[in-house]
Design a binder for these strands. Structure first.
Length: 438
DNA sequence: TCTGGGGTCCTAGGACCC
DNA sequence: TCTGGGGTCCTAGGACCC
């Protein structure tokens, strides 16, 4: 047994839990959080799960039944979730070293202690997050990331674990029989729908059976990833740490894409949307101090439409020099689709992808390499945004605002729908909660 | 009427070079 | 006319994750 275990902390029903933090009246009730455009269910409270609502269900197909069951629905409020996530991660980083924020609601940590001491620290950490942010987390402690995922899963499903399960504290028999034999193959980290189907075809149904396969043989038949998963299930760490200290820095690509509130017909509307999303992507590029060398844009019609045939196109522009200039990038995005779209197709999505990312710092020292960097326009936009709020200025449609609660978006007809948005309590002065002491 | 968004890694195959 | 073998780089696409 390895004595420096990996700790995985993962929030329970994160988005749904966030909605209850500043609205305690919804706690204990069935609540679902919907994706952008109020499309699909992406997070559910325990009570909503108990009603049999599955993740990914299109909201319009269950809306009436949900109303009957008094289910509360919320549009996704990423501003709130992001803010609570940062608080939660910050609290946890004070308890154990080597935090890797893996997603908005979970992080790995590397404990220098043995399993038992790690468990005691994790219990204190868990209470600190609950008290400091109001979000319940579950914790798995194990020698590898894949096993930490499995023990975390176990902790979530077994109330007797009080939110924490430690692999090293289980007997060898329990590890195999109670835990690995009860985990279905699709619940193993790294095994998706397709792979699970192929494995079941070979009679491999539970995690324990996968662990007992020959790794070399499975690598030949499937992939190097599957070999790693098998070794991880045996307690041999093979999944590299993503210890990029800059936090959230993207190495390969930055993508910004959205479904529209209403479909777009014709090139001009798509060009407007592409230009707006290019500016969002550009802001993220600048925040991580990168430049990009290629701007790609894709757009697609609805894959569900009964009237139109599905159609998708993409175009891409290679920049002359690496750049983070929103003028250059948004203009490339406008050009990328030129002449490619079909005028009669109703497009419902557009996305802008920035690739070929390079570190801006390497061009600071070698100006002769010729990067086209932003001359200060973005900084001016940021200053205006800080003083007057988001979306007051921008290039083209990005400078146009919608009305009311959605005024962070452009006022275009295709802007997303968010009809059930909760307050952005921690990021907007005018939406701060009011507390009365009677 | 109404079906999310943002990533990573790996592999195959083509282009190109010597 | 004939037309190998090995390497690298890039891109597209598939599969997976939350």
């Amino acid at each position: 047994m390895q004595e420096h275990p990996i700790v995985l902390a993962d929030a329970n029903n994160f988005y749904a839990s966030c909605e209850a933090v500043f609205h305690p009246e919804v706690a204990g009730k069935p609540l679902v959080v919907l994706s952008n455009n109020d499309g699909c269910v992406v997070s559910r409270s325990y009570e909503a799960k108990a009603l049999g609502i599955a993740n990914g269900t299109p909201w319009f197909t269950i809306r009436q039944e949900a109303a009957y069951d008094q289910v509360i629905a919320r549009s996704s409020n990423y501003e709130l979730y992001g803010s609570l996530s940062r608080r939660m991660m910050s609290i946890m980083s004070g308890f154990l070293p080597g935090q890797e924020v893996y997603s908005i609601d979970e992080c790995f940590m590397h404990s220098p202690w043995d399993s038992e001491r790690t468990r005691r620290i994790a219990a204190v950490m868990r209470r600190a997050v609950l008290q400091g942010v109001g979000i319940p987390v579950s914790i798995g402690i194990a020698p590898t990331k894949t096993l930490a995922k499995i023990t975390n899963h176990w902790a979530k499903r077994h109330p007797s674990s009080h939110g924490i399960t430690t692999w090293g504290n289980l007997s060898r028999d329990d590890q195999g029989t109670a835990v690995l034999s009860s985990i279905e193959i699709d619940d193993v980290w790294g095994i998706g729908r397709r792979l699970a189907k192929r494995l079941r075809g070979l009679g491999i149904r539970q995690a324990a059976q996968l662990r007992d396969q020959d790794p070399v043989n499975m690598r030949r038949r499937f992939s190097v990833q599957l070999e790693r998963t098998i070794l991880e299930l045996r307690g041999i760490p093979c999944i590299a740490d993503d210890n990029d200290a800059t936090g959230g820095k993207r190495d390969c690509q930055i993508l910004c894409s959205r479904m529209f509130g209403t479909p777009i017909l014709g090139e001009e509307g798509l060009r407007q949307a592409a230009s707006v999303y290019a500016q969002y992507a550009c802001r993220r590029l600048q925040r991580q101090h990168s430049l990009c060398t290629r701007v790609s844009v894709f757009c697609a019609s609805s894959p569900f439409s009964k009237h139109d045939q599905y159609s998708s196109v993409c175009g891409s522009i290679l920049l002359q020099d690496p750049s983070d200039d929103p003028v250059i990038i948004s203009s490339a995005a406008r050009q990328a689709l030129h002449g490619r779209i079909t005028p009669s197709v109703r497009y419902v999505r557009v996305g802008v992808m920035l690739t070929g990312l390079v570190d801006a710092a390497s061009y600071d020292t070698l100006p002769a390499l010729g990067a086209q960097t932003d001359s200060g326009l973005s900084e001016a936009f940021e200053q205006v945004a800080r003083r007057f709020g988001p979306a007051h200025v921008g290039i083209g449609f990005a400078g146009i605002r919608g009305d009311g609660r959605n005024n962070g978006d452009t006022g275009a007809a295709w802007a997303m729908r968010r009809e059930m948005l909760s307050s952005r309590c921690t990021t907007r002065w005018d939406e701060m909660p009011v507390v009365r002491a009677d």
